[in-house]
């Protein structure tokens, strides 16, 4: 049993579209979305026998398309769980024993992030931020192939079992520049705001539970809105993510979670933004 929030939880199985490679017909579609970054990712059980010294071999799998590399601190494992509310504390009892590596395309529009227990694919705007969003279907198609390549690598070189995914995530990060929304007030951009006088500073967030077809919680949708500033000027940073456990540990179910998470994100984006802004972003 969950708290009140569960009554408003989202049931994934009502989404009948499960083929990640084709766009659902009824999904809101924006010709010029304010997207700045999209992240698809999975967390998995480390392959037995694999150690960081083999990370160069993993890079070799993707080096042709991702010739640049950076080393980053590892991200700690994370799991979406549910219980009675308690004060949350941050912790890490031990490091991953493996750094996180970014494998980047020459133009740096896309990158793979790899560490002992995580694999992510990012698309992002860079430079003058005019590079075009290649669309979700393109990104998940690449991500799917990359995951299978990684699984085969572990199986072939370490006699590892199939990749055992325990957590999936999708994140859409939107930069809504004030200069792009000139003439609109805050209420014309965000449908959940109704100010008589616009505030000087804005920061808010909320979550919704993601339920499976038995009504059990499997993950969360998180939405965060705050203000930021870049060389292009001030903007609202709207981040929407879905994160949770797939129905099984297989890559197929992981991709299904990612695909359904994307549907939730796009629908939520339309729900919490307002028609005048939709027009600006050329809703179809």
């Amino acid at each position: 049993m969950l708290g009140k929030g569960s009554e408003k939880g989202i049931i994934f199985s009502t989404v009948t579209h499960k083929n990640p490679m084709t766009r659902p017909a009824n999904l809101p579609d924006f010709e010029k979305p304010p997207l700045n970054e999209v992240v698809l990712g999975v967390q998995f059980a480390p392959a037995p026998g694999y150690q960081q010294i083999y990370a160069g071999q993993v890079w070799e799998l993707f080096k042709k398309d991702f010739p640049l590399v950076q080393e980053q601190p590892a991200l700690p494992p994370s799991f979406e769980t549910f219980g009675l509310p308690r004060p949350q504390i941050g912790f890490d009892f031990i490091g991953a024993g493996h750094d996180r590596f970014w494998f980047l395309r020459e133009n740096q529009h896309e990158l793979i992030q790899f560490q002992l227990d995580k694999f992510l694919h990012n698309w992002r705007k860079v430079g003058d931020e005019k590079n075009e969003y290649p669309r979700f279907e393109h990104i998940i198609s690449k991500f799917s192939a990359e995951l299978k390549t990684l699984e085969t690598f572990f199986q072939k070189n370490f006699s590892a079992p199939p990749l055992s995914v325990n957590q999936c995530e999708v994140t859409y990060i939107n930069f809504i520049y004030e200069s792009d929304t000139a003439g609109l007030d805050l209420n014309d951009v965000f449908s959940f705001l109704n100010f008589e006088t616009s505030p000087d500073e804005v920061a808010c967030n909320f979550t919704r539970h993601i339920l499976n077809d038995k009504g059990e919680p499997r993950g969360r949708v998180r939405c965060t809105l705050n203000q930021a500033h870049s060389a292009k000027g001030p903007f609202y940073r709207l981040e929407i993510s879905t994160k949770g456990a797939p129905d099984s540990h297989s890559i197929t179910d992981a991709l299904s979670f990612v695909n359904q998470g994307r549907v939730k994100i796009v629908n939520l984006f339309k729900e919490i933004t307002a028609p005048p802004a939709h027009k600006l972003w050329s809703i179809k």
């Binding site: 970054e37 992240v39 590399v69 950076q70 991200l75 740096q108 990158l111 992030q113 990012n122 992002r124």
Partner: peptide, 17 residues
């Protein structure tokens, strides 16, 4: 940005930790 969101950074051929 989010920890997994690297936007805004640049890469050289191999960067140090």
């Amino acid at each position: 940005p989010s920890a997994f969101s690297p936007n805004g950074t640049t890469a050289t051929n191999v960067a140090k930790l």
